[in-house]
Nucleic acid binder design. Structure first.
Length: 249
DNA sequence: GGCTTTCACCATAACGGTGT
DNA sequence: ACACCGTTATGGTGAAAGCC
């Protein structure tokens, strides 16, 4: 499912009308000819398509982030996947006020980077990572990772943000990232390590234990990398649920 | 044009669920 | 235990579409 299959951002078009369009064979902007809906809605659809074509040609992810309701942000993914920034943070605890960010891992177009507190985890390094990202992808990042980073650093993240927790719930996948990975068959090197262990590993590293930091980093990287695999799975499944049954014969 | 049905959308409230 | 976004449920409102 790509952005060009979508009509849901148009005022007056909801789930039902979009489905009617798809069923009539209008599964792509190119197929729209003003039929199926009434005059008013047809005009609105046409003007949306005109603008959206330009925005898409410009690679304007932010525009589409605003156009799609939060529950439909996953539809943006296919178009912007190569500039999607998957990321995950580790901290010394759950409190944004008392605790600190220890590591941040980014996965972007197949490349993974980890920033470490006391070394290269700086506001400039963070800005550089987020600067040209089309969209953010996290798990529960709307309530944890993003606000935590914004509180800890002088940073404001207003990218389109796909928080996988909600689409996962929609698909009946719950119980946290690790559990969901297990359910959909994503492999992990160290399935025994949890977020709590990340806290412990950082403390051990500070006390000078050999290898603690390496373990923490590899755990953090795996979180970020696995987000990409999970996103592909989730996007496929939602496509199969929402679009495929209607649009394909 | 007048009428009816369908649909989108808004407001509100209660609840579920996950991060380290 | 905490914070809190998004979903769900509910009810109401008004616009659009299609029929005659």
């Amino acid at each position: 499912m790509r952005i060009e299959n979508s009509f849901i951002p148009v005022r007056g078009v909801g789930e039902t009308t979009e489905r009617r369009l798809w069923e009539a064979g209008v599964t792509h902007w190119d197929e729209f000819d003003g039929s199926v809906v009434g005059d008013t809605t047809a005009d609105r659809i046409q003007s949306f398509i005109d603008t959206a074509r330009d925005r898409l040609a410009d690679g304007d992810a932010r525009y589409f982030g605003e156009q799609f309701p939060s529950g439909e942000q996953w539809r943006i993914y296919e178009n912007f996947r190569s500039d999607a920034c998957f990321f995950d943070i580790e901290t010394t605890g759950l409190s944004q006020e008392r605790d600190e960010v220890t590591t941040v891992s980014f996965h972007r177009d197949g490349e993974t980077t980890t920033l470490v507190r006391g070394d290269d985890l700086t506001i400039d390094a963070l800005r550089a990572q987020f600067e040209d990202a089309a969209m953010l992808v996290t798990f529960n990042g709307k309530r944890f990772d993003v606000p935590f980073l914004e509180t800890s650093f002088d940073l404001s993240l207003d990218h389109p943000h796909l928080d996988l927790m909600y689409p996962c719930k929609q698909l009946g996948l719950t119980g946290g990232l690790k559990r969901i990975e297990g359910e959909v068959g994503v492999e992990r090197d160290r399935p025994d390590i949890t977020g709590e262990d990340a806290v412990r590993l950082w403390k051990e590293h500070q006390r000078g234990r050999d290898g603690a930091l390496e373990t923490l980093i590899s755990y953090n990287r795996e979180d970020a990398v696995n987000l990409r695999t999970l996103t592909d799975t989730v996007a496929d499944r939602l496509h199969d649920d929402v679009f495929a049954p209607v649009a394909e014969r």
